[in-house]
Design a protein around this nucleic acid. Structure first.
Length: 116
DNA sequence: ATTCTGACAGCAA
DNA sequence: TTTGCTGCCAGAA
């Protein structure tokens, strides 16, 4: 990919969504893990941007399954209600205490090792 | 064209 | 252990 234009930017968001959609029900991953899987390991913040934009997408993107590297629900304020993200996770059997996922290592799904 | 901003992550203190 | 700073880089407050 020699060039990097607007269409490519859109591809980045699309690629982020593609990976996000593959996160299994009841599992979670991190912004950085998605970034690394896409080969842009230093663009974790951009993954956050993509999650923010995903809410306006007509396609369902399970953005609630993306948390920070320590399992904290750092994106909770970007859902309609402050409690929404946690509720969505709890609906999938994930336990959240003090904005952090319990047994995070067991729930963690790393695209780099799970996808081939 | 320029500047500002973050749903992060890593590391220095 | 915890906090604070810095690099990051695509969008647009």
């Amino acid at each position: 990919m020699p060039h990097h234009r607007k269409t490519d930017n859109k591809d980045f968001f699309t690629r982020v969504y593609e990976v996000t959609k593959l996160i299994p029900y009841g599992r979670v991953t991190s912004y950085g893990a998605i970034a690394r899987y896409l080969g842009t390991g230093r663009s974790a913040r951009m993954v956050g941007w993509a999650m923010n934009a995903s809410h306006t997408s007509s396609i369902f993107i399970p953005a609630h399954r993306v948390v920070n590297r320590n399992g904290f629900l750092t994106g909770k304020h970007h859902f309609g209600n402050t409690k929404t993200m946690q509720q969505l996770l709890e609906n999938e059997g994930i336990i959240v205490e003090n904005d952090q996922i319990v047994n995070f290592s067991e729930k963690f799904w790393d695209p780099a090792t799970e996808l081939k």
